[in-house]
């Protein structure tokens, strides 16, 4: 870096650190998706089918996620029911 560069744009984060932040987020996201068991999509579909027997919901109204911590796995199921 020369004397002329010294005066300009100090506060902006470098493009490399932006790249690192973006990569860490997308790579972490893709890794959790990769580690999900193969049965998850089918299980989600079957859960939707069961709920539909009683309440009319769209397939995007059920969010399903599996989180693994060191000691246990948590299956998180989030169903949005329509307004009465």
């Amino acid at each position: 870096m020369g004397i002329f560069d010294y005066f300009k744009s100090k506060a902006e984060p470098s493009s490399a650190s932006v790249a690192k932040d973006r990569l860490q987020i997308i790579v972490a996201h893709e890794r959790t998706k990769r580690q999900q068991p193969d049965y998850l999509p089918q299980m989600q579909q079957e859960i939707i089918d069961v709920i539909r027997k009683y309440v009319q919901i769209g397939s995007e109204d059920v969010q399903i996620q599996l989180d693994n911590t060191d000691e246990c796995s948590v299956l998180e199921l989030n169903v949005t029911l329509p307004d009465q």
């Binding site: 870096m1 470098s14 493009s15 490399a16 650190s17 790249a19 690192k20 990569l23 860490q24 790579v27």
Partner: peptide, 17 residues
């Protein structure tokens, strides 16, 4: 380019992968 903050450094890539 790494020194100028224009390129991911060795340790950045090691951290991610």
């Amino acid at each position: 380019r790494v020194a100028l903050g224009e390129m991911l450094s060795v340790s950045d890539v090691e951290d991610i992968l």
